[in-house]
């Protein structure tokens, strides 16, 4: 990944910052410049909006033929998570047994290493998800 591109996306990746349409109130993640519904009405009204970081698993799968970046983690779980604000994100589910995952599982975002450009290159951090109760003694 290009350094500049990652740097531009730091707010999204570390903090889950999307945008809210100032016209209709719809929330978007990743951020968009224009609301697809309100179009010109939303021009210059797309304000930064921080997702609260919690949501629920819509669907998930275990990956056993990994992307080269994630070989150390194999097998790992990818899921589509619907955040409380309604937006859907794709992300890893970590620190949980595959058998304990189900649609509707409540999860929260935590920052993890997403990858790196080899041992000399930049390290990329961003959100992954874990069950909301996994660190609360439940």
């Amino acid at each position: 990944m290009a350094i500049a591109r990652f740097w531009r996306e730091i707010k999204q990746r570390y903090k889950g910052i999307g945008v809210k349409c100032g016209n209709c109130g719809e929330i978007f993640f990743p951020p968009r410049d224009i609301c697809p519904e309100c179009r010109r009405e939303s021009y210059k009204k797309m304000d930064e909006y921080e997702l609260n970081g919690t949501g629920e698993v819509i669907t998930y799968t275990r990956v056993e033929d990994p992307h080269p970046e994630f070989e150390d983690l194999c097998p790992y779980v990818m899921a589509i998570v619907e955040m409380d604000e309604g937006v859907r994100l794709t992300g890893h589910i970590v620190d949980v047994d595959y058998d304990d995952i189900e649609a509707g599982l409540e999860v929260e975002a935590s920052m993890r290493k997403l990858g790196e450009d080899g041992p000399e290159g930049m390290i990329y951090y961003g959100y992954k998800f874990w069950p909301i109760d996994s660190r609360r003694g439940e």
Binding site: L73, V94, M111, R112, K113, I123, Y125
Partner: peptide, 8 residues
């Protein structure tokens, strides 16, 4: 885990 370090 391999995706954890001092930053995370």
């Amino acid at each position: 885990s391999p995706d954890e370090d001092v930053v995370t």
